[in-house]
Design a protein around this nucleic acid. Structure first.
Ligand SMILES: [Mn+2]
Ligand SMILES: [Mn+2]
Ligand SMILES: [Zn+2]
Ligand SMILES: [Zn+2]
Lengths: 159, 159
DNA sequence: AACTCCAATCGTAATAATTACTATTTAAGA
DNA sequence: TCTTAAATAGTAATTATTACGATTGGAGTT
């Protein structure tokens, strides 16, 4: 849960962007962004739908997906989590990267100047122009490791 | 197109793995790997299907997807290209990373010791244990840039 | 080489995420 | 308040991927 103040700042910024881009600042859009901006867990579309429904009971899947695309295109949110069955979303616009648990799909943020300022290799410049870097560190999270330990113990040599 | 010699080496290695793991070295599996190992373009499942069909006309989608999963699980191939609508596959098992064109989805390999030996930040160690790094440099490839130039010229100020 | 057996394949159906359609509603400017 | 085009809700369509059940064939045995 992110601080309410920050969340409302993000929502206000979005309303300004709507005005500038000439798109309507609807209740649905506002609530979807508010939900995402308040979360640190990079939820998927269905999770966002379920949660926003508590406040806007008639909201539709179409609106969820359409709004997420709109927000992504405006640079207000990003899509994270590679090659999984479902997309995950992120309202954190600070330059950062992700740790992904391959077991439970938990996604955590981390920051690294070294990674941000990584020099683009020659061979890449020859392929095209680089506009963004996506880094994902993959492994097993604390929680899943502990769970594995317990399971191992249960099937172990104890009488 | 990768050299035929290298491709056949990869296929032979796979046949050995089949023997060790007690799974059957079928014609279909061999041809799927041969196709993928011979390509440098990180094809998707449908592309692989189309191409393998030229040599094995009756091969089914099920076999393609099932085999790709088998090869991935055995570490013979990898899945690349994040958060797109379809998965892309890679038979290059050398440690390397990718440049991805956001326009045409072209994927190119690059190598970087610096990126491979990157120290894992403290905050990540606290989240869990890192087992792999996935890096994607995103941008616009040469070909797409030239195409954009031409289109711009056509709609420009020339009489 | 013929025999056996179970894993693998084929053709097709099912699933699940995402996108599209259309009648209805609503944000926002006059 | 009135107007209007954009946005939404409810539902259907699309698309990648996975599952199913009948049939085939790889590979070990005789
Ligand atoms: Mn994040
Ligand atoms: Mn590659
Ligand atoms: Zn986990
Ligand atoms: Zn391109």
């Amino acid at each position: 849960m992110r601080p309410k103040q920050q969340v409302e700042k993000r929502v206000a910024d979005f309303l300004e962007i709507c005005r500038r881009q000439g798109v309507k600042a609807t209740h649905q859009r506002t609530e979807i962004l508010r939900e995402l901006a308040g979360s640190e867990e990079h939820p998927d579309a269905e999770t966002i739908l379920t949660r926003v429904r508590q406040r806007v009971p008639t909201i539709s899947v179409d609106t969820i997906y359409r709004t997420l695309r709109l927000l992504e295109d405006s640079g207000v949110i990003a899509r994270v989590g590679s090659m999984r069955d479902r997309a995950r979303f992120d309202a954190n616009t600070d330059r950062h990267h992700h740790f992904v648990c391959t077991e439970c799909e938990m996604i955590g943020d981390f920051y690294s100047d070294a990674m941000d300022q990584f020099p683009v290799p020659q061979e890449v410049s020859e392929m095209g122009s680089v506009e963004g870097v996506y880094v994902e560190l993959r492994g097993i999270c604390r929680k899943c490791k502990q769970k594995a330990m317990k399971t191992e113990g249960r099937t172990g040599e104890k009488p």
